[in-house]
Amino acid sequence: MASRGPPGARGGMNTRFAQFKLVLLGESAVGKDQFDSYRESTIGAAFLTQTISLDENTTVKFEIWDTAGQERYKSLAPMYYRNANCAVVVYDITQASSLDKAKSWVKELQRQANESIIIALAGNKLDLVSEQPDKRAVSTADAEAYAKEAGLLFFETSAKTAENVRDLFTAIARRLPLDQVGPRHSRPGQRQGVSLNPESPNTNVGGPCAC
């Protein structure tokens, strides 16, 4: 359970460490699994993490939640959206229908998630059109126009070559309210509850939590 609290230096003199919940959505086969380059497999992972250093003193850690397939039969639990600080909605630039699906996920997020959620739209599989431009089914301009209108960050990415993936996470990190207390223990010691960890001290309400 070590992933919950920030490792190492907890906000030393001039360092900031913020943790945020990020949810991944998109049609099947657009590349969500590959999206986080550190990801090994969906099986058995509660969620994976991605750490971005914004500058020498600021580190942002994303706790990335995969739907685990629960969206397949419209069975995504409210827990999935609960306190999500940011979302990456992925489509495949070689499949026009996947952008429609992405748009419906954006609507769903606006309905279910926090009002302040930051949403990034990712047009994935950029490497395929670099090799064969005629494979492109969604133009950059169209997707960008939609993203602008809906207030989303927008990147075309390749999860395969990692092109733009880090830029996308960095752009999200820059938009996040690093100085405010996030809704979900976004800074060290922000977790409001008790730790169920057996080794934890008896009374740690409000204190830093190691679980």
Partner: peptide
Amino acid sequence: AIYGGTYML
């Protein structure tokens, strides 16, 4: 679900 369970509400 993470271990492969299929959900249908």
